[in-house]
Computed example of a mutant assay.
Amino acid sequence: MTPSFGNESGVPALPSGFIPKVDAALNDLLNGRADVDKFVATLNTKFKELSK
C-alpha cells in the first residue's frame, strides 16, 4: 500500500520524481487538457517508469 502523501520514506515512499509528475497531470486535468481516464493512465505510466 502506498500512502496518499508524498513525504514518506522507506518502503511506502513514492518513487523519486513522482510528485512533479502528479502536479503536471493534475494541471492538465484541471485545465481540461486531460480527462479522468487520461489522468489515471498518465499516473500509472509515470509510476511504473519511475519505479524501475
Rank of each mutant, 00 (worst) to 15 (best):
M1A: 09
P3N: 05
P3W: 02
P3S: 04
P3I: 01
F5N: 13
F5T: 10
F5E: 06
G6K: 01
G6C: 11
G6H: 15
N7A: 12
N7E: 07
E8T: 13
E8P: 00
S9M: 10
S9H: 11
G10V: 15
G10D: 14
V11Q: 14
V11K: 06
V11I: 12
P12I: 06
P12T: 06
P12C: 13
A13M: 04
A13K: 06
A13N: 05
A13C: 13
A13G: 10
L14V: 01
P15D: 10
P15Y: 09
P15W: 10
P15M: 14
S16W: 01
S16A: 11
S16G: 07
G17L: 03
G17V: 03
G17N: 03
F18L: 09
F18I: 02
I19F: 03
P20M: 04
P20H: 03
V22T: 05
V22K: 02
V22W: 13
V22P: 00
V22M: 06
D23I: 09
D23N: 11
D23C: 11
A25V: 05
A25L: 03
L26M: 09
L26S: 14
L26Y: 13
L26A: 13
N27M: 08
N27R: 06
N27Y: 09
D28Q: 13
L29V: 08
L29M: 06
L29K: 03
L30Y: 08
L30K: 15
N31S: 09
N31T: 15
N31F: 14
N31P: 00
N31M: 09
N31W: 08
N31D: 15
N31Q: 11
G32W: 06
R33Q: 12
A34M: 07
A34E: 09
D35P: 00
D35T: 08
V36E: 13
D37H: 05
D37S: 13
D37R: 14
D37N: 15
K38A: 15
K38N: 03
F39T: 09
V40C: 06
V40R: 04
A41I: 04
A41S: 15
T42K: 00
L43R: 00
L43D: 01
L43I: 07
N44V: 13
N44T: 11
N44L: 14
N44I: 11
T45R: 13
T45V: 03
T45S: 12
K46T: 12
K46Q: 15
F47A: 10
F47G: 01
F47Y: 07
E49P: 01
E49Y: 04
L50F: 12
L50K: 08
L50V: 09
S51Y: 05
K52H: 09
K52P: 01
K52D: 12
